[in-house]
Amino acid sequence: MTDEDGWNSTPLVDEVIKKAAVAWVSAGGPAVALWCAPLEGALVVVSGPGEQAAPGLADATQAQVTMRGDHGGRIVTWPARVTRVRPGTEDWETLAPLVAAKRLNATGPAAELVRRWADEGCALNRLTPAGEPLAGDALPTGSLAEPPRESLAVRATRRPFRLHRVRRR
Rank of each mutant, 00 (worst) to 15 (best):
T2C: 00
D3R: 07
E4Q: 11
W7S: 05
N8W: 06
N8C: 02
S9A: 15
T10C: 01
V13C: 02
D14H: 03
V16S: 10
K19Y: 00
A20K: 02
A20N: 07
A20Q: 03
S26D: 10
V32E: 07
V32I: 06
L34Q: 04
L34C: 04
A37D: 13
A42Q: 04
V45T: 08
G48H: 07
Q52P: 06
L57C: 10
L57M: 09
Q64T: 08
M67W: 14
G69A: 11
D70T: 13
I75H: 04
V76C: 08
T77S: 12
T77V: 01
V82M: 00
T83W: 03
R86N: 13
G88K: 12
G88S: 12
E90N: 14
E93K: 15
P97Q: 08
V99D: 12
L104T: 15
T107Q: 15
G108R: 06
P109I: 08
A110V: 07
A111M: 02
V114M: 08
V114L: 09
R116Y: 10
A118Y: 02
E120L: 02
L127W: 06
P129K: 03
E132G: 09
P133R: 02
L134Y: 08
L134N: 01
A138C: 05
L139I: 03
G142W: 07
S143A: 12
A145P: 00
A145K: 13
A145G: 02
E146P: 01
P148L: 06
T157V: 13
T157H: 11
T157C: 00
P160G: 05
F161I: 12
R168V: 07
